[in-house]
């Protein structure tokens, strides 16, 4: 019984985190229309990719201090479920689901698109709002691939907050080639500084792989690469790349790559 109470408490904490991390998206108009208009195959791929991502994230930052695959899967599913319920409840209160029947595509599309970031929030909150001991032990164990995975999740998570908005497209239209190059340079510089120079709390164990060049090539460059890939994937998922000229897609990717790079850089602080 005590374990149930304990788990219930962790679950409540996770719900709080899901709320905290996902309300900006739930209150973003584009998320509602995208839930309806997103290509169904892309939405399906997105949902299918979310599950393993949650399992991986649960390993690094789960809301229960676990180590075994079964527990990670259970935690990931619970977080996903929490995301669904929370999104449905809030979208319902906001009147977004008004006029949608329970089983309709529109309702499920809107809710499931919002459920993914909420689930990530739920998993992160387990650690952010809870104790830190076990989480930091996991951190130290993340190898180069785990590191890249965390960067990808951080990038996707932060980029997701702005990816659905019209502004991404608008900014891309407003920027010329020079602006774009400047933004690339700024993104890379910030990524490098955030990760290896500024010494945020919780990154004490971050290794400087020898000299500047090795750190840059070994960590910062892959980090930015992952951030750009995540940006492109999100833009594609939301249908922003359809019928758009390649150079315009590149600019959009760079624009979204800016928050993505910040997300990749701070992934270790949050996760």
């Amino acid at each position: 019984m005590d374990a149930n109470v304990e788990y219930g408490r962790a679950l409540a904490r996770a719900a709080g985190g899901a709320l905290l991390f996902s309300f900006p998206l739930l209150m973003t108009m584009e998320m509602w229309s995208l839930g309806v208009t997103v290509d169904r195959w892309r939405l399906l791929l997105f949902l299918l990719l979310t599950l393993p991502m949650l399992v991986g994230l649960s390993y690094f930052a789960g809301f229960e201090p676990t180590f075994r695959l079964k527990d990670e899967v259970l935690d990931a599913l619970a977080a996903f479920g929490l995301g669904f319920l929370l999104s449905a409840a809030l979208l319902g209160v906001f009147g977004v689901l008004h006029g949608e029947s329970l089983g309709s595509q529109g309702a499920w599309g809107k809710v499931s698109l919002c459920a993914a970031p909420a689930a990530v929030g739920a998993l992160l909150a387990g650690k952010q709002l809870g104790e830190r001991g076990l989480g930091s032990r996991e951190k130290a164990q993340a190898g180069p691939l785990g590191e890249l995975f965390l960067m990808a999740v951080g990038a996707a998570f932060l980029a997701f907050n702005v990816a659905p908005t019209e502004e991404m497209i608008l900014i891309a239209y407003q920027m010329g080639p020079l602006h774009t190059l400047l933004l690339v340079a700024a993104s890379i510089a910030l990524l490098h500084l955030f990760v290896y120079r500024l010494g945020f709390p919780g990154e004490a164990k971050r290794r400087e792989a020898g000299n500047f060049m090795r750190t840059f090539v070994g960590f910062t460059a892959p980090g930015y690469g992952v951030a750009l890939l995540m940006s492109l994937y999100l833009l594609w998922t939301f249908g922003r790349t359809d019928g758009v000229a390649v150079h315009e897609i590149a600019t959009m990717t760079v624009v979204l790559g800016f928050p993505a790079a910040l997300g990749a850089a701070t992934a270790r602080l949050v996760v």
């Binding site: 949902l47 599950l51 935690d75 599913l77 619970a78 929490l82 669904f84 499920w108 599309g109």
Partner: peptide, 16 residues
Amino acid sequence: SAAVGLALAATAIGLT
């Protein structure tokens, strides 16, 4: 809670 999550995820994926 994992079962609830599985049911919801399966429904969303199934419908989509």
